[in-house]
C-alpha cells in the first residue's frame, strides 16, 4: 500500500497545479467545450479523491495490506480499544487530515448550496413582484429597466429567464430569440449544478490554482455550450449581433437613470474578476466570428479517455491492493 500512497500524492500534486494550468492555457477547449468540461470535472474529482486517498492510504499502511483490512484494523483500534502500537504519530496525523479534508469538502458543498439557494429565493421573491410575464415566451419575465440585461434564474420548475425592456428595445426579434435559446440552454443543460460544484470547490480550497482556474474555465465553457445551442436555432450573425448589443450597450454603470443611481464605485469590480468575466466575452465572440473545426474524433476520444483514466486510477489504487494481493 505504501507505493500507492506515493502515487496518489504525486497525482494530487499534478492535478492541483501543472495540469489545470496547462489546460487553462490550451486553445482547444473553445473548439470542443463539452469535452473540456468533462476533463475539468475529472481533474477536480480525481484531484480531491487523490488528495484524500493519499493521506488515507499512507495513514492506514501499518494496519493492513489493503484498504478493507486496514479499515477493519482502524475500527478495532477506535472501537474495540485494540492496542495501536504500529500506528505512529504521523499516521494518526495523516488519518485526521484525510477525514478533516473530507468533512471540509462535503460541508463546503452543502453550505454553498444553502447560500446559493437562499440568494436565489430572495431574488425570485423580489422579481415576482417587479416583473411581468412575457406575452410571447413561456417561463420568461420582463423587468422594466433601461440597462440591456438578460439572465436566467435556475430553480427547478420555477426556473425563469429574465429580460429587461431596455434589452427588448435594442434587439431585433431574431436576436432576442438567440438570447432566449442561449439562456434556456443553461437551464436545460443544468449548468447551475456545475457552477454550484465548482463554486464550492473554489471556496473550499481557494489557494489551490486548480480551483480558481477550474471555476473560471467552467464559467466560460458553459457560455460557449449555450452559444452552440443558440446557433443551432438562429444563424451565427444573429447571435453575434445580440452579443455585440448587450456587451457594448450595457457598458458603463447605467443602473436606471438619474433617480436610482448606485453608490459610487458599486459597479467597479475588482480587476481580476473584471478580467475573467470580460475576457470570456471576447473568447466567445472570437470563436463565433472565426469558427474553428471541433476536435477530431480521435482527439476527443483521447481527452475523454484521459478523463476516465483520471477517475479510475485513484479509485483503483484505493481498492485494488485488496483485489490482487
Amino acid at each position: 500500500m505504501f507505493w500507492a500512497s506515493h502515487f496518489l500524492a504525486t497525482l494530487a500534486v499534478v492535478l492541483a497545479w501543472p495540469a489545470p494550468i496547462a489546460l487553462s492555457r490550451a486553445q482547444w477547449p473553445s473548439r470542443s467545450p463539452f469535452t473540456a468540461m468533462i476533463l475539468w470535472q475529472a481533474i477536480a474529482l480525481a484531484g480531491g479523491l487523490s488528495m484524500i486517498g493519499a493521506m488515507l492510504v499512507w495513514g492506514l499502511e501499518p494496519l493492513g495490506d489493503n484498504l478493507l483490512e486496514a479499515l477493519r484494523g482502524l475500527w478495532d483500534v477506535l472501537v474495540n480499544n485494540r492496542p495501536a502500537d504500529t500506528l505512529g504519530l504521523m499516521h494518526v496525523f495523516a488519518l485526521s487530515a484525510a477525514s478533516l479534508l473530507t468533512a471540509h469538502l462535503v460541508f463546503t458543498l452543502l453550505i454553498t448550496y444553502a447560500r446559493i439557494t437562499r440568494q436565489r429565493r430572495r431574488h425570485r421573491n423580489l422579481l415576482n413582484l417587479l416583473s411581468s410575464p412575457s406575452h410571447t415566451n413561456p417561463s420568461t419575465v420582463v423587468i422594466k429597466h433601461p440597462t440591456p440585461v438578460a439572465y436566467c434564474l435556475p430553480g427547478g420548475a420555477r426556473s425563469v429567464t429574465v429580460l429587461s425592456d431596455g434589452l427588448m428595445g435594442l434587439l431585433s426579434e431574431d436576436e432576442l430569440q438567440a438570447v432566449l435559446v442561449h439562456e434556456r440552454a443553461h437551464l436545460s443543460q443544468r449548468h447551475h449544478l456545475l457552477l454550484w460544484a465548482f463554486a464550492a470547490w473554489r471556496s473550499a480550497l481557494p489557494w489551490l490554482p486548480t480551483s480558481r482556474l477550474a471555476q473560471r474555465a467552467v464559467n466560460e465553457l458553459i457560455e460557449m455550450l449555450a452559444d452552440d445551442e443558440a446557433v443551432k436555432q438562429v444563424d451565427q450573425e444573429t447571435l453575434v449581433g445580440a452579443i455585440a448589443v448587450v456587451a457594448t450597450g450595457s457598458h458603463g454603470p447605467t443602473i436606471g437613470g438619474s433617480k436610482q443611481t448606485l453608490p459610487q464605485g458599486a459597479l467597479e469590480p475588482d480587476p481580476e474578476q473584471d478580467d475573467e468575466a470580460s475576457l470570456s466575452t471576447v473568447h466567445r465572440l472570437r470563436r463565433l466570428l472565426e469558427p474553428k473545426r471541433p476536435l477530431s474524433p480521435l482527439q476527443s476520444f483521447s481527452a475523454l479517455a484521459t478523463s476516465a483514466l483520471l477517475l479510475m486510477v485513484p479509485t483503483v489504487l484505493l481498492v485494488a491492493p485488496g483485489l490482487f494481493v
Binding site: 454553498t112 446559493i116 439562456e183 447551475h192 457552477l195 448587450v246 468575466a277 470580460s278
Partner: peptide, 10 residues
Amino acid sequence: AVLARFIGSV
C-alpha cells in the same frame, strides 16, 4: 452560481 447572465460585465 446564483444566476447566469447572457453577458458578464465588460
